[in-house]
Amino acid sequence: MTLHKIAIPILGEEIVPRFDLTTEVIILTTAKNLCIQDKKIIVLPRSSSDELCHTLLAQEINTLICGAIEDEYYEFLKWKKLHVFDGVSGTWPHAFERWQTQTLNPGDILFIRMVEGNLI
């Protein structure tokens, strides 16, 4: 059975807007049918892009869904063969669901848009 590991840096339920300011990462392991086999949250001692990259490699992550990331780290992770969806904002379950249905794209904004309490 081929397992696929997805990492999403989070802040509560939402994807943290900045990769370098992440202190919590949710790691989802899916089977071939893309259903979640395992879910765990790693809490980092401090926010650091270097340490987070190291964690992702140590955890053998295949796909990263994150917010804003500096080009240096983006290129590094791509070079390390990670599939990176950056610039994604919204809740992590929503982003994961889009990934499962193969409708997630880098830069996707998944929030419900509201101004002064009204949907727009």
């Binding site: 807007p17 370098d20 300011l21 917010g67 904004i109 419900i112 848009r113 509201m114």
Partner: peptide, 19 residues
């Protein structure tokens, strides 16, 4: 068009927004 109606921290993406 991209930013209207979403929380500002996801548009400005500054460290101050998070810290």
């Amino acid at each position: 068009d991209m930013a209207r109606g979403i929380p500002c921290k996801n548009v400005l993406r500054s460290s101050a927004c998070i810290l």
